[in-house]
Amino acid sequence: MAKSLNTARRINTILALAVVFLLVLATNRIDQHHFKTAQANMNEVFEDRVLVQDYIFSISRELHTRQMKLYGAVLQTTNSGSEQTENVSQILSKFEATKLTPAEYNLLKQFKSDFSTLEGLDRNPSTQTDVQLRKRKSDQLAALQQNLLELSEIQVRESRRLTRESQKSLDVSNLLANLEIFFLIVIGIALQVLIFYKSKKLAKQSAA
C-alpha cells in the first residue's frame, strides 16, 4: 500500500514538473514572437518610414529648385533640368521598393503621373506664351508638393502606428516574463511544501 502511494506521488510530481516545463516553454515561445514583432516593426520604421521621409525631402528640394528656377531665382551652377529629372527618377525607384500602404501606392502613382506631365511641359512648350507656360508649370509644381506633403503625413501616421504596436508587443512580453517568474515561484513553493510535508509524515511514521 505504502509503495503504491509513493509511486502515485512520484507520478504526480513528474506530471507537475512537466506542466511547469510546458507552461514556461509556451510563454517563452509567445515571448519570442512578440519580441520578433517589435524588432520587425522597428526595422520597418527605419527602412520604410524614416528613409522614405528623406526621399520625400530630397524630391521636395529638387522641385523647389525648379520652382525657383522658373522665376529666375537660381544661380547657373544649379543642376540642369535633365539632371534633376534623373535624380527624382532614381529617388522614386527607391521609394517604390519600400513597403507601401494602399494610400501611399495611389499617391505615389499620382505623383509619377503629375511629374511626367511636368516633364512634358518642359519638352513640348507648345504654342503657349511664356506667362501661360510658367503658370502651368507653377501649378503643376504646387500640386506635386502637395502630393509630397500627403505622403509625408502617411510616414508620420505609419511610424506612430508601428511604434504603438512595438510597445504593445514589448508590454505583453514583459507581462509574460513576470508571469513566468510568478509561476516558477508558486510551483517552487508548492514543491517545497510537498517535500516538507512528505518528510514530516515519514518522520512521524518512523517514530511510530
Results as ranks from 00 to 15, higher is better:
H34C: 07
L100N: 00
A97G: 03
T127C: 12
S126G: 14
K204N: 12
I56N: 02
F196D: 05
F111D: 00
H64Q: 10
K168H: 13
S89I: 11
G188E: 00
E44T: 08
A2G: 09
N178Q: 11
T65P: 02
I91W: 04
H34Q: 08
T78S: 14
K99L: 08
R136T: 14
V172I: 15
Y105Q: 15
E153W: 06
A190V: 08
E86C: 04
H34V: 05
A177T: 12
L51A: 05
L5Q: 12
M1K: 05
G81L: 14
G81I: 14
Y197V: 10
N41M: 06
R9S: 08
R164G: 10
S113V: 14
R161P: 11
R123H: 12
F21V: 15
N174I: 07
D130S: 15
F115H: 04
L175P: 09
S58V: 08
A8E: 13
A208R: 09
R123Q: 10
N178V: 10
Q192F: 11
Q155A: 03
L202P: 06
Q39C: 06
I189V: 15
L148E: 02
T117L: 10
R49Q: 07
R136Q: 14
K201F: 03
Q145A: 07
R10G: 03
S93P: 02
Y105H: 13
L108I: 04
E180A: 10
N147M: 06
E86P: 02
E165W: 08
T13E: 09
S93L: 10
H33M: 13
S116W: 02
G120C: 03
V74D: 02
L194E: 08
S4V: 15
A142L: 13
Q67D: 12
H33R: 08
T78H: 03
R61L: 13
K168Q: 15
R61S: 14
Y105G: 05
R66Q: 14
G188L: 00
N28L: 11
K112D: 06
R49Y: 00
S169L: 04
A38P: 02
R157A: 09
A18S: 11
L176H: 02
E158L: 13
K99T: 12
Q39E: 15
T127R: 07
V156H: 07
A26K: 03
K135W: 03
I11R: 05
A16D: 07
K94G: 10
K137F: 01
E119Q: 08
M1A: 07
H34Y: 15
E86Q: 13
L23Q: 02
A103K: 05
T129R: 01
L133S: 04
A103D: 15
Q205F: 09
L176T: 01
N124F: 15
D122F: 08
E119N: 10
E47C: 05
E62K: 05
Q155E: 14
R136K: 14
Q205N: 14
I187E: 05
L100M: 03
K3P: 11
T127G: 14
L162W: 00
R10N: 09
R157W: 01
S159E: 04
V156C: 03
D31P: 13
I185S: 07
R134K: 10
I91Y: 04
L118S: 00
L144K: 01
S116V: 09
A103F: 00
V19W: 10
